[in-house]
Design a binder for these strands. Sequence first.
DNA 1: TGACAAGGTCACGTTAGGGAACTAACCTGG
DNA 2: CCAGGTTAGTTCCCTAACGTGACCTTGTCA
Lengths: 137, 137
Amino acid sequence: MTTSRPGGRDQRPGERGDLLDPRCPTRQLLDRIGTKWTSMAVKVLAEEAPGELRFAELRRRIPGISQKMLSATLQSLVRDGLVARRVEPTVPPAVHYRLTELGLSLERPLSALRVWAETHMPEIERHNQLADESLPN
Amino acid sequence: MTTSRPGGRDQRPGERGDLLDPRCPTRQLLDRIGTKWTSMAVKVLAEEAPGELRFAELRRRIPGISQKMLSATLQSLVRDGLVARRVEPTVPPAVHYRLTELGLSLERPLSALRVWAETHMPEIERHNQLADESLPN
DNA sequence: TGACAAGGTCACGTTAGGGAACTAACCTGG
DNA sequence: CCAGGTTAGTTCCCTAACGTGACCTTGTCA
């Protein structure tokens, strides 16, 4: 991914920010779902939809993710309006996450991608192995 | 992108590498199409399918890409079996690229994603602006 | 005195991507 | 005969960012 996001401040107008890329929306989308954990988080939340999941439960369902990354991923998703965050002012506060309608609508094409990945990735790996076998040195 | 690819060695075996991430095929796919120029290259090649495009022509149709990046992107795609490369031994050599059937099959879910991006990215940007307006400092 | 919830912060390593210069082989023009 | 151009790449160097791991925080319950 190239375009900076979380801390914002891209496209500063003073600099000769060349804006070469004409804001291709597909690029922007891939910059989001292409980050390591985003698509997995969306999937896990989609499985629970329209229900909610709490932070710790999400962590449990996404093996290998750290608190920091889960937190950052969720913040991105909330910021993009794909996920809604609801805080119950109990103590300790309980935070609930769920997909918004927008997030659910993304889940559709995303799951199509997942299906493609599951059926065709083995073939891609085969190709890679072939490429490795010839001229590995 | 996180998972290293060319030289591979993840999953150190000494650790109880329980394959935390079970090589989620979706992530592997996103590691590929998530790179900056890949999806654009696939799209351009798909528009021409089943015809071929030469290096320089691809470069012309992907504004902003450098030779280096185009070359690297195409190599990845060829290695994955998504693109076929044909060299005419003329001089200077003419190299032709086209999507394989596998590549074409990927184009389908990918274009669905593109459609989603084009229709919904404005909404995502709206959400981001809202988030920026509140508590910007 | 811990443990839990939901994070935040710091310090660090790796890598993707950009830019510019260089290569190969041959052809053409002067 | 030699400079210069073409195509399709490489090679080196540099940076911004992504992701990780370890530790800190605030408040309450057992």
